[in-house]
Design a protein around this nucleic acid. Structure first.
Lengths: 139, 139
DNA sequence: TTTATATCTAGGAATGATTATTATATAGAA
DNA sequence: TTCTATATAATAATCATTCCTAGATATAAA
C-alpha cells in the first residue's frame, strides 16, 4: 500500500483512500475494467465510495497517464493500466475484450498525418474470440 | 432517385421514402454523420420521420454493408458510406472527424489474431487537426 | 503539530444518446 | 387487388456519464 501511495504521489496525484482503492482494483484485475466494475471492486475497500467519484478518479488517472481509456465496446468505456501500445479485440458474442499480440506497425506510431498532430492511436479489431469459437458460454 | 431505389433493392433493403432520404443524406454529405445529423437531413425530404426510425435505418444499412459505424468520438456514433478501409482522425479541439490518408498496414488486414476470427478493424487517431493548428474556430 | 485552503467526495439530480414498445401504415409478393 | 411481413411514428424507458453542491480531507505552510 505504501508503495501505491508513492506511485500516485510521483504522478502528482493527491492520495486518498478512494484513489488507492481504484488503483488497487486495476492492479488486481490486470485487465480491462468498466467504470461499474471499478466501482464494485473499489467498494470492497471503501464501501461508501460513489460512482461519481469513480468516474472522477478514472478521468484523473487517464489525464495523468496512469490509465488508458478504451472505447472499443459500444456505449461504454473500459479502462486499463497504461503499458506498451497495443491493439484490442472485442468479441461480438461474449463482449470480452482482449489485448492483441501483434506488433503495432511503425506507420501508426507517426506523430502527424494529413497535417494533423497526433497524440494517441487506438486500434480495434472485432469478431469472434477463440473461446466462443470453441463453443464456450457467454459470460 | 430511381437509381437509389435499385441500389437498395440489390441489397435486399425494402425501399421506403424514409430509407431513400437517409441514403441521400449520406450521398450528399459525403462525410461522417451522427444519427442526429442524419435525422435533420432526412427531415428535409420526409418531415414526419422519427429519430427512432433513423436509428433503425442506420442499423439496417450497417448490417447490409451499406454504411459503417464509427465510434471514434466519445458518447456518440458516426456513420459513413462504406468504402476502402481507412483510419480516422478525431480532433480534440473541434471534434471534427477526418479520413486518414495513409495506407492500412497489411498486418491489420489479417483475418485472425491470437486465435480470434476478425471481421472488422477500426483505427482511430486523436490529436489536433490542421485547421485548429492554424487557429481556426471551433465548429 | 496546528492551521489554512485547494481539492476531493457523497449523494442525487440532470443529460443525452440509444433502445424498446406498440399501434398503425405500407412495400412488395402473390 | 389482397395479404402479410415488416417499417414507421410516437413515446416511454434505459443506461452510461456528467453536473451540482455542501461538507470532508489531504497536503503545504507556519
Amino acid at each position: 500500500m505504501q508503495q501505491t501511495s508513492e506511485i500516485l504521489r510521483e504522478l502528482k496525484i493527491k492520495v486518498t483512500p478512494q484513489r488507492l482503492s481504484v488503483y488497487l482494483a486495476f492492479n488486481k484485475a490486470r485487465g480491462h475494467l468498466s467504470a461499474d466494475e471499478v466501482y464494485r471492486a473499489a467498494q470492497k475497500k471503501v464501501p461508501a465510495i460513489s460512482l461519481g467519484t469513480v468516474y472522477s478518479i478514472l478521468e484523473n488517472f487517464c489525464a495523468k497517464g496512469l490509465l488508458r481509456e478504451i472505447k472499443i465496446d459500444f456505449n461504454k468505456s473500459f479502462y486499463e493500466m497504461k503499458k506498451e501500445p497495443h491493439h484490442h479485440f472485442s468479441c461480438r458474442i461474449c463482449n470480452k475484450i482482449f489485448d492483441v499480440h501483434m506488433p503495432v506497425c511503425s506507420a501508426l506510431r507517426t506523430n502527424t498525418v494529413d497535417g494533423h498532430i497526433i497524440d494517441d492511436f487506438q486500434g480495434y479489431f472485432y469478431g469472434t474470440c477463440a473461446g466462443c469459437l470453441n463453443g464456450k458460454k457467454k459470460k
